[in-house]
Structures are given as structure tokens and as C-alpha cells.
């Protein structure tokens, strides 16, 4: 067993212990086909929590999309992100980095991997869900057949809010919703509105 596998197991157990997280799949059972999980974002724990609450077989093939300015730094952080979580680092700044980032996401999907995306682009305060940025739309346009699964994360901004480094061990909750797909004539704006509404809808479930 490699060091990365061991670390992944330990990280999963630790995440579950600290956040007490329980996954709910009220609409559809987990599926092994490649999916894009998109979630609201309010804590550094979010990526880990979604990843740790997936069934083990799915987890092994699910890659978080991580901001390279934060995660792709030398040391433990990079090792954890790139080797243990197998994250795809993407450039958040505008410009030609975006096209390159999209290419890497599509490539991963084509290889049969699933993705974890936070389309708000940055962490919010946990109270409201911000407007979604267009990355999710571009992925959906490139691969219209891909199922996009809305994921609502609850209480994680209370466990580890933005700007804090010590967690408070409350009980978090992850709700995986019914997948959505890009409609044939759907505009970018309409699609992103619908995706955001799917997240808000899960909040009330």
C-alpha cells in the first residue's frame, strides 16, 4: 500500500470524525459514471468533505478542482492536493489560463474521472449562495451528456469559517441532489441560474 493510499484513508477518517458528516442521496443513488459534483463553498473543509463522503469506489475516481494559487505551493499542501486527493490545479486569474484549465477538466472527464467544482469561485460566508461563474457552463457545453450533480454543504462554514484555523466540531451535512444537464438551446445565463436554483432547492430539503 502506497503512502498516498494510507494518507487518503487517514484523511477520510479524520474528515468524518471532525465534521461528523453524513451523506444523503435523497434523489438518486451514487453512480460510477463520470460526473461533475458542483457545490456551494464556504470552508476549506468543503473539498475534503465531499470527497470523504463519497463511497470509496467513487472516491478513487473523483478529482477536486483546486485553485493553483492556493494549493499548488511547494510542501505538504501540494503533496496532499496533487498526490493524495489527485486534485486538478486550475488558474483562477483571467486570461489564457482559463482555456488550459477547461482543457484539463475535459480531459479528466474523458478518462472516466469525476470532478468536484465550486462554481462560486471563492468561499462565501455560508449564509447565501453567490452567483455562479461560467466554468460550470463551459464544462457542460463541451460535454453536454455529462451529469452535473448539485451538492449542498451545510454547517461547514460554522465548523471552519473563512479566516479561522481551528475547527469547532459541529455536525456537517452533505446532500447530493438530482443531476442536471445543459439544455439544447439553453443560454449561459439561464443554465447558471438553474444550477444555482438546484443548490438553493437542496438547502430546503
Amino acid at each position: 500500500m502506497s503512502l498516498e493510499t494510507l494518507a487518503a484513508g487517514a484523511l477520510t477518517a479524520l474528515t468524518r470524525l471532525v465534521t461528523g458528516v453524513r451523506a444523503r442521496w435523497p434523489d438518486e443513488a451514487p453512480s460510477t459514471s463520470p460526473r461533475v459534483y458542483f457545490a456551494n463553498h464556504s470552508s476549506h473543509l468543503d473539498t475534503l468533505v465531499i470527497w470523504a463522503s463519497l463511497p470509496a469506489t467513487l472516491r478513487a475516481r473523483t478529482r477536486p478542482v483546486a485553485a493553483s494559487d492556493y494549493w499548488d505551493r511547494p510542501g505538504l499542501r501540494r503533496w496532499l492536493a496533487l498526490r493524495v486527493l489527485r486534485a486538478l490545479p486550475v488558474d483562477r486569474s483571467d486570461g489564457c489560463g482559463k482555456r488550459e484549465a477547461l482543457r484539463r477538466l475535459i480531459e479528466a472527464l474523458d478518462q472516466g474521472d469525476s470532478l468536484i467544482l465550486f462554481p462560486e469561485g471563492t468561499r462565501g460566508d455560508g449564509a447565501a449562495i453567490g452567483e455562479l461563474r461560467s466554468g460550470l457552463y463551459h464544462v457542460a457545453r463541451e460535454r453536454p451528456e455529462a451529469a452535473l450533480v448539485p451538492v449542498f454543504l451545510e454547517n461547514l462554514s460554522r465548523i471552519l469559517p473563512k479566516g479561522e484555523f481551528l475547527p469547532v466540531p459541529l455536525i456537517g451535512r452533505v446532500t447530493f441532489g438530482a443531476p442536471i444537464r445543459l439544455g439544447t438551446d439553453e443560454t449561459r445565463q439561464a443554465f447558471l441560474q438553474r444550477a444555482r436554483a438546484a443548490l438553493i432547492d437542496l438547502r430546503n430539503r
Binding site: 461528523g20 462554514s157 479561522e164 481551528l166 469547532v168 466540531p169 459541529l170 455536525i171
Partner: peptide
């Protein structure tokens, strides 16, 4: 006690400003 407090505070609305207070409590 730790788990019961965790259950109680999870269901009780607290705000961002209570984060450090809660850390002390737990």
C-alpha cells in the same frame, strides 16, 4: 458530554462571532 454538546450546538443557531467561544466550550 462532548457529543451531546456537539448535537445541541449543531441545531442551535450561532453566528460567526461565536466561533472562538465555541472552541473554548468544546
Amino acid at each position: 458530554s462532548f457529543i451531546a454538546l456537539r448535537e445541541f450546538i449543531t441545531l442551535t443557531p450561532t453566528r460567526r462571532a461565536d466561533h472562538r467561544t465555541l472552541f473554548w466550550a468544546f
